[in-house]
Design a protein around this nucleic acid. Structure first.
Lengths: 222, 222
DNA sequence: CGGGGTCCTTGATGCGCATCAAGGCGCGGT
DNA sequence: ACCGCGCCTTGATGCGCATCAAGGACCCCG
């Protein structure tokens, strides 16, 4: 239901100023929308006419095979831009991982703006590509333990290297991102915990106990 | 050795006209270079100041982990553009799969050109992203047999849906692209052949015997 | 405070692909 | 033609992760 949204959810923005962030320029004429947990933001094979930015919450992009196997392309947290992963049509769908507030802008408007603004769109696309390529390496050549370690490290890095990190998503989402099953994810998390690499304060919050150990497990990659 | 090339390999181009191809505009002021089989075109962590187009031959992008595990990011055949997969520095290296002729242009020159030309660069980056995301799905959720089938179908599609297709790369490269071992690739190829899906005329050339069967195996993806 | 549902963990077993090992095939050199 | 070497195939075995199964932890709601 990307475009058939409720108008109560839409708010026109008075030129948001998010701390001198250059990407904010992309969204000067956007609208905000709210999505409930697990609500679809856009669907596989829908037109890719909009681009999006997370204000609050978390988003996943997913692709489902005919028999139900699911792959998550990426997660997007506060300030991340998504929806660029497409030609004319989206190859993945996007869903709210939990209740989320999303800023939306027309891609065509962006293209029309030209120059500097357009270049920011290219930059964002390039970052997406880099992340996708890291993901390819992870899925192609890392073990289950390395995948989970990479995932936790990535989350920690995204939070500016914080030692205590929240997991916005459940175990099934992690599994579908890492190309594993929920049981294997759970086992690897337990294993990392008993190896004093991380420590779970709650099901969805962990502490990095041994950052070097975590990096070593994650970055066997050169 | 991307930049320390031999000058004998460099030829300035008299505005190449490749059949009205729009991407050709990107390369109006490029130079051609030749690379021998397995020669490096650019290295991991090198500056990403150039973009490339295959004129003849084939190229692979690779990433090697500390312990030698290797992942191939993608293959590039005649007319494909590569080298966009990067911020300031390349995350993958690029090597010639066999003797190849490559057209090279400065990315900064392209950026300076602005407008229409720059947009083509964005388009090319977006196509790269789409391919990387297909690769993620393949590596995350497809079985060995499906991966090999997808690979063969992809090659056939790239050749305009040809029934008889050449494999420019060896089995090890296929394995490193698909996240498998060389033995498994070989076994799956044999299996597809005895299932009358494809038929190998030579080690590096096959015929698509049953296109629907191949598509069914490859495209369990919606 | 207790009941029920969802999500998560842990254990037992099995399978798909990796690993180890041994030839076979094709191709270039002499 | 023949040899030698690299690449590929095929077979035997093992391991890592999936699958199947059974609780346990947490949370919402009465």
């Amino acid at each position: 239901m990307a475009l058939a949204y409720d108008y109560k959810d839409v708010h026109y923005l008075p030129t948001p100023q998010r701390g001198g962030d250059p990407v904010a320029a992309l969204f000067r004429m956007g609208v905000t929308m709210t999505f409930a947990k697990d609500e679809e933001i856009y669907g596989q094979d829908e037109d890719a006419d909009l681009i999006y930015r997370v204000l609050e919450g978390a988003v996943r992009t997913t692709r489902v095979m005919a028999d139900g196997r699911r792959q998550i392309g990426d997660f997007y947290l506060a300030d991340d831009v998504f929806g660029l992963e497409a030609g004319p049509r989206h190859r993945f769908s996007a869903e709210a991982v939990r209740d989320s507030v999303i800023l939306v802008v027309k891609a065509s408007a962006l293209r029309a703006a030209g120059g500097e603004i357009e270049r920011l769109g290219w930059e964002a696309t390039r970052r997406e590509l880099e992340r996708a390529q890291e993901h390819v390496l992870l899925l192609g050549r890392k073990t289950a333990c390395e995948r989970v370690a990479s995932f936790l490290k990535d989350l920690s890095d995204k939070s500016g290297g914080a030692r205590v990190v929240d997991l916005p998503m459940g175990r099934q989402d992690i599994a579908d991102y890492l190309g594993l099953t929920i049981e294997t994810v759970s086992r690897m998390l337990s294993q990392l915990q008993s190896g004093r690499i991380v420590s779970f304060c709650a099901t969805r919050q962990f502490r990095v106990v041994n950052p070097e150990g975590l990096a070593r497990l994650a970055d066997q990659a050169h």
